[in-house]
Amino acid sequence: MNVLLEIGVQHYLVLATALFCIGLYGATTSRNLIKVLMSIELMLNAININFIAFSKYVTPEALSGQVFAIFIITVAAAEAGVGLAVVLAIYKHFKTVDISKIHLMKW
C-alpha cells in the first residue's frame, strides 16, 4: 500500500510517459494541423514534468532541471508562434488545415 500512499518519482514518471505517449499519438494521427501543434505542446509539457520531478528527487540541491523546464516553455512558445504562422500560410494557399489534403509533393 505504501506505493499508493506516498507520492514518489515513479508516479511523476508514469504521468509524464503517459502524457508523452498521448501527445505522440495525437501528433502522428491527427489530421488537423492545429491539433498536431497542440499534441506537440503536450509532449513538451510531459518532458517538463520529467525534468521537474527529477530535479526534485534526484538533485534537490541544484535547480538545473527546473531551469531547463523554463527554457523548454520559452522555446515551445517560439515554436508555436512559427508553427501558427506557417499554418496561416497553409490556409491561405490550400483553404484547409487538413493535413491529408496537403500533398502537392509526393515521392
Partner: peptide, 14 residues
Amino acid sequence: SAEAAIKYLIFGSI
C-alpha cells in the same frame, strides 16, 4: 514552400 515548411516543422518538433 508553405507545405515544405509545415512538414519540416512537424517532423522537427516531434
